[in-house]
Structure formats: structure tokens, C-alpha cells
Amino acid sequence: MESIFYQSHAGSWAFLILFFLISYFFSKQKITLMLQRLFAVIMIVTGIGMWILYGFPMFYLIKGILAILLIGIMEMLVGRKKRQQSHGGMWAGFIILALIVLLMGYNVIG
């Protein structure tokens, strides 16, 4: 069961980033934004499943909170681009959070 959650979780992250980039750079596409949100939900559900299987460790709770913040920044970046608002500083937050979550996920940090 752990392997199913892990593979689904890692794959959903890859698709989430892919659909985020497509949604951002091709902002007229509506389907990619919906797919981005679908994979965000899959990622959250599988993350919670793994958190339960691992016995509720605090490390993964912190990673989950950072991941949800990262998803929020992705949504804000796409929304600000569509409304043509400034979003330069949010890219820095996106890159930093993405690196932290990725390094925590592969146990480089921790």
C-alpha cells in the first residue's frame, strides 16, 4: 500500500509542476488549470495517506504544510498572470518552497 501511495504522490507532483508551467505560460488554456487542480488534490490525498501510514511524523506534517503553501503560490502566480498583476517576488517564493519540499521529500533535508 505504501508503494502505491508513494508512486501516486511522486507522479502527481511531476504532473502538477508540468500543468502549472503550461497554465502559467499559456494562460488561455482552461483545461490545464483544471488538471493542475486535479493533480493538486491527488497529491494532497496521497500525501495524507502516506502521513497516516508512517504514523503521523512531525517532519512530514511540516512538509505537507509547505507543500500546501507551494500549491497556493502556484494558484496565485497563475491568477496574477491572468489579471496582469505584478508577481516577480512570488517566483522567488515558488522556487525556494519547491526546492525545500523536493529536498524534504527525498530525505536530503531532515
Rank of each mutant, 00 (worst) to 15 (best):
M1R: 07
I4L: 14
I4H: 05
Y6H: 13
Y6E: 12
Y6C: 02
S8L: 15
H9P: 11
H9F: 08
A10C: 02
A10Y: 04
G11E: 06
S12K: 06
A14K: 09
A14Q: 13
F15N: 12
I17H: 06
I17K: 02
F19N: 04
L21E: 00
I22M: 10
S23H: 10
S23R: 09
S23T: 08
Y24E: 03
Y24A: 01
F25Q: 04
F25W: 11
F26D: 00
F26E: 00
K30G: 01
K30M: 07
I31Q: 13
I31E: 10
L33R: 12
L33Y: 14
M34P: 00
L35M: 09
Q36V: 03
R37W: 03
R37I: 02
L38W: 14
L38A: 14
L38D: 06
A40F: 10
V41G: 01
V41P: 05
I42P: 06
I42F: 09
M43E: 04
V45N: 02
V45Q: 01
I48T: 05
G49Q: 03
G49N: 00
W51P: 04
W51E: 00
W51K: 02
I52T: 05
I52L: 10
L53S: 08
L53Y: 13
G55Y: 13
P57I: 08
P57Q: 09
P57E: 05
M58W: 09
M58N: 04
F59Y: 11
Y60N: 10
Y60M: 10
Y60T: 08
Y60E: 01
L61H: 01
K63L: 05
K63C: 06
K63Q: 09
G64N: 04
G64S: 02
G64P: 08
G64F: 06
I65F: 14
I65N: 05
I65A: 11
I65W: 07
L66A: 10
A67M: 12
A67R: 09
I68Y: 08
L69T: 03
I71G: 01
I71W: 00
I73G: 02
I73N: 09
M74Q: 15
E75I: 13
E75D: 11
M76T: 13
M76P: 02
M76F: 12
V78C: 02
V78P: 05
G79A: 04
G79D: 06
K81T: 11
K81G: 05
R83T: 10
S86I: 14
S86G: 15
H87T: 04
G89D: 08
G89P: 13
M90V: 05
M90Y: 12
G93R: 03
F94W: 14
I95V: 15
I95S: 15
I96W: 13
I96Y: 10
I96Q: 12
A98T: 15
V101Q: 00
L102G: 15
L103Q: 01
G105S: 14
N107K: 14
N107W: 15
G110Q: 01
